[in-house]
Simulated scan of single mutants.
Amino acid sequence: MPLHVPPAPAPALRSVLVALDSPTAVREARTPSLRTAQGDVTPELPLPLHVLDRIAPDGVAATRLAGWRFLIRCGDRAVAAAETRLTPDGWAFSHFFEGPYIASTERALRQAESTAQPFQARLLSIPGLYMLTLWLHGDSTSDGTTGRPAPTDLLVPLAPAPPGIAAHRAHRVAELLPLLTLRVTPAAPPLLGSPA
């Protein structure tokens, strides 16, 4: 399989396992499907979650690692996800959630497994567009915590994607970033006295 999923830090995984074993954490989560799951639930497919804070004028994307996201599986499907974050004391459980990105992530990972080129799976969040992508990074030996999108990396927008951007279609970073730059860059305010 050419798709590589980097191992999550052991403390991040432990924090999710502890939260799953905590009736309080599960009961207070806004995840009905996790609360009503019948059978064992297990965290799988840890993906480093990077955030694209800005795209520089030269087209270089600055990203930062925001956490690790685990799909929570019950039986043959993912019913929720768990996110961890880095604190001054190390990796800690952040929250459980559910919604359309769970099934969309699973679908994008299945699609990515059929690629001929080896990739490392990551998630890339673009808050300015309310957009989440599966980031297929070309350096499959990386630990997943550092790096920026290379021009030849692939981004697969997850559904729901912003209007005008096709979900589940792989785009080279060099092709998608210019489009995202135009959308993220705020329009200049009109000059006083000019027609709006």
Rank of each mutant, 00 (worst) to 15 (best):
T42A: 07
T36P: 02
L177E: 02
R69D: 00
A103H: 07
A62Y: 09
D89K: 15
T63W: 11
T42N: 08
P88D: 11
L47N: 03
E28H: 12
G90H: 09
D58K: 10
H50A: 02
T185P: 01
T24V: 15
D89R: 15
T105C: 07
G67I: 13
A19H: 10
L45P: 03
S114P: 01
T115K: 06
L13Y: 09
V184F: 08
A62R: 15
T42P: 01
V79C: 06
P88W: 13
L34A: 05
V79W: 05
L49V: 13
A29T: 03
L180Y: 10
V18Y: 10
V18I: 12
P48Q: 09
D53M: 09
R110H: 06
H4Q: 14
P48Y: 09
A187W: 14
P186Q: 09
H171A: 05
A19W: 11
I55V: 15
I102A: 03
S22N: 14
V156D: 00
L155E: 07
L124Q: 13
Q120F: 10
R35K: 12
T84C: 04
S140Y: 12
P88S: 14
F119K: 05
P46W: 11
A61I: 05
L65S: 06
L86I: 09
V18W: 12
L182M: 11
V51G: 01
F93L: 08
I72C: 02
V79G: 00
T146V: 14
I165V: 14
A61Q: 13
A56R: 08
R169W: 02
P118N: 11
F93V: 05
S104P: 00
R54G: 00
R54F: 06
G128L: 13
G99D: 02
G99S: 04
G90C: 07
A92S: 10
P32D: 01
R107N: 04
L20Y: 08
C74V: 14
A166C: 04
M131G: 06
A61D: 04
D89W: 10
A112Q: 01
T152A: 10
R183V: 00
S114C: 03
G144R: 00
A159W: 14
H168V: 00
F93N: 09
R107D: 01
D89L: 12
G67R: 10
L123D: 07
A161W: 11
T145S: 03
V79S: 02
F70V: 14
L158I: 03
P162H: 06
T63A: 02
L132N: 02
R35E: 05
Y130G: 07
L52Q: 13
G99Y: 13
A103K: 14
L17I: 12
P6H: 08
R110P: 00
H168K: 08
G59P: 02
A81E: 12
L134N: 00
S104V: 08
T36N: 04
P7D: 13
M1L: 08
R183P: 02
L47G: 01
S125Q: 13
P43M: 03
G90F: 15
A81F: 06
E106Q: 13
L45R: 11
E175T: 15
S22K: 12
P100H: 13
H50L: 06
R69H: 02
D139E: 08
I165C: 03
G147F: 11
A170T: 01
P32I: 02
P2W: 04
E83I: 15
R30Y: 09
F119V: 06
L13R: 10
T87Q: 14
S15K: 12
V184D: 07
R73P: 03
P178V: 00
